[in-house]
Write a protein that binds this DNA or RNA. Structure first.
Lengths: 199, 199
DNA sequence: ATAAATAAGATACTTTGAGTATCTTATTGA
DNA sequence: TCAATAAGATACTCAAAGTATCTTATTTAT
């Protein structure tokens, strides 16, 4: 059976194949080397098709990640079944660090390098991320309030510190915290800040 | 008086002029749009001259920043004349935030976007930065020990938290902390972590 | 069932910059 | 003052951006 060269993918299927090709290239060669030409070749389509959907590789990857987030649901539905606040913070931190992958890292770097040109888009995305992060940590803190571990909500800066420090390590220093380091971070910085906020 | 087209800059002067041109372009258009062609045109020299000194725009800017750091001496010589640990932490944080400028920001983003291709160089630089940061905060903490404010040095993670959180805000969220936010960061996170480390 | 609309895919062209190589010429310093 | 060195000009190939035009497979509506 000879393959029929005339089969044409369309719409969502075509877009997903292109995303997949871009994903693999991003993983292999990084954002700097990502071009429409390479993506088209990898996805076995034409450059003109890609131009019809996206203006730049940035737009393509941006929408790819957004798409991916929609499907995977992010950490928002993490199951907070720790027996106290410390354990729930660990669960949250852990789900953040394991959620990292090379494409998200490349995406982070890409966003930073494009910040000067796409500030609106990127600020909006960080707002989305912070909102999601606050949702999950606020759930953990509310449980701690219900359990009388703490009395009231700390400031936003304190509530986001866990995420910011993990993300600093991962995005900027290119290092994913192991369990011991995550625990250290929680015990030495995040929990003391929460405790101090209660006075 | 007609200008003499045959005057040739050389060595350090030429390099500094090229750095200056690159600096202005970086500030105006960001790292993504920085090309040897544009730099050469802006510096009124030839592309081949630039290739003789650097392999890529990344290398050029990397060395430019290193050069600039050498001259300005960084925050290492900050004068810690606060009357207690809290004031000295504020002085340190302040000198970090005021030391930021658009070129350093672009540089940070550039480094992140090149991390996949230049990991050695960049890890080395982050080590340098952390070492410098530890030097200055350790000086402040040693003064606090001498004054009996604290008894011993906190862990490295705690000592670097001030820098990491400031840098997170600046590099990743593109937002420079004002005095009130810096003070909040110190009072709500850094100092509680230091205090907790004393038990 | 077929025609019209739509989207995929091929191709061609211009422009820009990377990277390399070669040449001339200004400047330095032995 | 002459040889060595570095600046600067120029020319070439290649890859990719961006745009435009054309054909053709597939879908949709009649």
């Amino acid at each position: 059976m000879v393959e029929n060269k005339k089969n044409r993918r369309r719409g969502d299927q075509l877009q997903n194949d292109i995303y997949q090709a871009a994903y693999n290239l991003l993983k292999k060669e990084g954002y700097t080397n990502l071009t429409f030409s390479k993506i088209a070749k990898a996805a076995q389509t034409s450059r003109s098709v890609i131009y019809r959907y996206w203006d730049t590789p940035f737009d393509l990857v941006f929408e790819m990640i957004h798409n991916q987030m929609k499907d995977s649901g992010q950490i928002a539905n993490t199951n907070l079944n720790g027996k106290n606040l410390q354990e729930n913070l660990f669960i949250i931190g852990k789900s953040l660090t394991t959620g990292f992958n090379i494409v998200l890292t490349e995406f982070n770097k890409m966003m930073l390098s494009e910040m000067i040109e796409q500030p609106q888009k990127i600020h909006k995305l960080f707002d989305e991320i912070n909102t999601g992060n606050l949702q999950i940590i606020d759930a953990a803190l509310q449980m701690a309030i219900d359990n009388k571990e703490i009395k009231f909500m700390p400031s936003q800066q304190v509530r986001l510190s866990l995420f910011h420090l993990i993300r600093y390590s991962y995005v900027i220093e290119n290092h994913n915290l192991d369990d011991a380091q995550l625990l250290e971070l929680i015990n030495e910085i995040v929990l003391p800040a929460i405790v101090a906020s209660q006075k």
